[in-house]
Design a protein around this nucleic acid. Sequence first.
DNA 1: GCGCCCGTGATCGACTTTGATTGAATTGGC
DNA 2: GCCAATTCAATCAAAGTCGATCACGGGCGC
Lengths: 265, 265
Amino acid sequence: MHSAEREKLILESVNQRGFISFQDLERHIEASPATIRRDLERMMTAGLLTRVRGGAKRIESKNAKRRSPDTGHHLTGVPFEENVNLHPREKQAIGRAAAKLVSAGEAVMIDGGSTTLQMCQHIRGLNLQALTNSLRIVSALLQQPGTRVLVPAGQVFPEQHIILAASSDDGMQRFHAPKLFMSAAAVGAAGLMQADIILVAAERRLIDRADKIIVLLDSSKFDGPSGHIVCGLDEIDILVTDQGVSPRHAQMVQDAGVKLIVAPV
Amino acid sequence: MHSAEREKLILESVNQRGFISFQDLERHIEASPATIRRDLERMMTAGLLTRVRGGAKRIESKNAKRRSPDTGHHLTGVPFEENVNLHPREKQAIGRAAAKLVSAGEAVMIDGGSTTLQMCQHIRGLNLQALTNSLRIVSALLQQPGTRVLVPAGQVFPEQHIILAASSDDGMQRFHAPKLFMSAAAVGAAGLMQADIILVAAERRLIDRADKIIVLLDSSKFDGPSGHIVCGLDEIDILVTDQGVSPRHAQMVQDAGVKLIVAPV
DNA sequence: GCGCCCGTGATCGACTTTGATTGAATTGGC
DNA sequence: GCCAATTCAATCAAAGTCGATCACGGGCGC
């Protein structure tokens, strides 16, 4: 078995399952442990995967967490990793429903979040022009030929792999899109809320550049923890959520003039 | 067996299985190893397959080249994947040497490239503020607590995962760093060269924002293929290369007033 | 026929990759 | 906090791979 073959096998396993243990690799690949180790090391320095003890991880899932008070500001809120696996089925359903709102060839903005990430796999082949501040969404979209990916300028925050501009100049002043897809930490009668004030500023900028605001929010976020208000309910055009939403909450958003889409799980 | 016959067999195997080992070819084709080698070499230069050690690989230039006139401009030049493993030892040595030029706590710009990527692992713990246009470098730096990562605005190009601004506004006009680390496709008496004109524009912007220009270039890039000139030799402050550099080339850059650092492999 | 040339086969030295071994480092259980 | 098990990194000999070079042989025009 040659290095090119092994590399292909490893990359498939890693990208498909997110993590592959060293023992699994040893079992499925005809090569000595030393060789597999060397493969992993080489692929890591090539930026194809992340090496962790006992195996290898997909490149996009990083280890950042509250380890560094030294990079200045750190976002408050639930770290991305913990968030993705929270209501996976609901988020997938919401993502699928939201993707149906996109027309082929148009420009969209996709704000970072575990729910908005889910919609990315469903917009393949639409030849979109997508502006996003999430590096995870960039990764997902870059694999789609035909999708043009744009990012704003700013600092990359390790917790969520999100780009946030410190100043108001994010290099995208002249960008405008018919639709903005965004998520939030919570929603209530006061409007959409985020845990971190810097996020709010960034999302306000996106809102100003969009005609239609489409919010993706799983039902557990209704009456969630309060925070800084991103925008009022009346600014939202469409809210996509899952079946778990209570009639009371549904009524609340609809009373505010929001079109409510309930995605079947 | 004639060359046309062999070519057909080889191409079938490669395209069907993605990879074919040299030994397999030797077994299935009635010809001497030398002949098969020559076939492979010829087919590689014809662009029919990719030659790798121990066999041949299906050509898969990701989503580059033919498949997507749809995402607009595509960068010319060697795709990143093929480039990383080209002179790995030299690039690592250069990266290590270049990292020594960085002082703790300062701001640096790191232009995308397989050589500049190598220096990232050596600047851990220096609490840098790093502006880069390469998403691979972002990935590498984000794993380091203490390193603050900034990116400019622009479109993400899938071949090399690089952010390039279409307009001159990349949201980083007010950024300035004492040092810029960059690479190039080639260097000659005319100066530093890149294969793609858009890259040149982006790198010019970086150059304008830096006090000192530090170029990382493995020795194979001297007198390489010509292209668009990024900057003259006289604009370069330091050039880091490996031991493979010829005395003639070393003299050339030194005559231009460039400080030459030769990294031990 | 004669020489020429192109494709082929064979050999050799340099280099790269691989696998086994060792000791150090890390992890998890008690 | 300590110990056992696992995992890792470094080293070295062996095998494999590569490119260069030269010899062989049949087709071709002269």
